[in-house]
Amino acid sequence: NPITQSQFVPLGEVLCCAISDMNTAQIVVTQESLLERLMKHYPGIAIPSEDILYTTLGTLIKERKIYHTGEGYFIVTP
């Protein structure tokens, strides 16, 4: 039996792509809307728990890849 190979993409990278897409579409990015986006637009991805999502978003903020305001999460533009 051949083994199907899937590509590994770090969660942080997927979140940045999803946040960027949602920002472009002017969709408010909350943790809930982000999870919905992942389920709908990234089939096959293991949906992270709320704790993992929260921690990963926190890491992306520390790395200055995203920022959070009262209006949601946004990509940091250079």
Rank of each mutant, 00 (worst) to 15 (best):
I3G: 12
T4E: 06
Q5K: 14
Q5D: 12
Q5E: 13
Q5W: 08
Q5P: 10
S6M: 15
S6P: 09
Q7W: 06
Q7M: 13
F8R: 10
P10G: 10
L11Q: 00
L11A: 02
G12D: 13
G12T: 13
G12S: 15
G12P: 14
G12E: 14
E13N: 05
E13H: 05
V14Q: 15
V14N: 03
V14H: 10
L15Q: 03
L15N: 03
C16W: 07
C16I: 15
C17I: 07
A18G: 02
A18T: 10
I19V: 05
I19D: 00
D21K: 05
M22L: 05
M22C: 01
N23D: 02
N23L: 00
N23R: 02
N23C: 02
T24M: 15
T24H: 08
A25C: 06
A25R: 13
Q26Y: 02
Q26A: 08
Q26P: 01
V28C: 09
V28G: 06
V29L: 01
V29H: 00
V29F: 00
T30I: 01
T30V: 00
T30L: 00
Q31C: 14
E32P: 05
E32I: 04
E32Q: 13
E32W: 03
S33E: 02
S33L: 04
S33K: 12
S33C: 02
L34M: 03
L34D: 01
L34R: 01
L34P: 00
E36T: 09
E36C: 08
E36M: 08
R37L: 04
R37M: 09
L38H: 00
M39N: 11
M39F: 05
M39S: 12
M39I: 10
M39G: 12
K40M: 12
K40G: 11
H41N: 10
P43M: 04
P43Q: 11
P43H: 12
G44D: 11
I45D: 09
I45V: 12
I45M: 14
I45Y: 12
A46I: 12
A46Y: 06
A46W: 04
I47R: 08
I47H: 05
I47W: 05
P48K: 04
S49P: 06
S49Q: 05
E50G: 13
E50Y: 10
E50C: 11
D51Q: 11
D51K: 10
D51A: 10
D51I: 03
D51N: 09
I52H: 06
I52Q: 12
L53T: 02
L53F: 03
Y54V: 15
Y54T: 13
T55K: 11
T56G: 03
T56C: 15
G58M: 13
G58Y: 06
G58A: 11
G58R: 14
T59G: 10
T59I: 13
T59D: 07
T59W: 14
T59E: 15
T59S: 10
I61G: 02
E63I: 03
E63W: 04
E63V: 03
E63A: 10
E63L: 07
R64Y: 02
K65D: 01
K65N: 02
K65M: 08
I66C: 02
I66G: 00
I66H: 00
I66Y: 01
I66L: 06
I66N: 02
Y67A: 08
Y67H: 07
Y67Q: 11
Y67R: 13
H68K: 11
H68N: 10
H68T: 12
H68E: 13
H68W: 15
H68G: 04
T69Q: 05
T69M: 05
T69I: 02
G70H: 13
G70V: 12
E71G: 10
E71K: 11
E71V: 05
E71S: 09
E71Y: 03
E71D: 15
G72V: 01
G72M: 02
Y73F: 04
F74G: 06
F74Y: 08
F74S: 10
I75H: 07
I75E: 04
V76S: 15
T77G: 12
T77Y: 08
T77H: 07
P78N: 14
P78R: 08
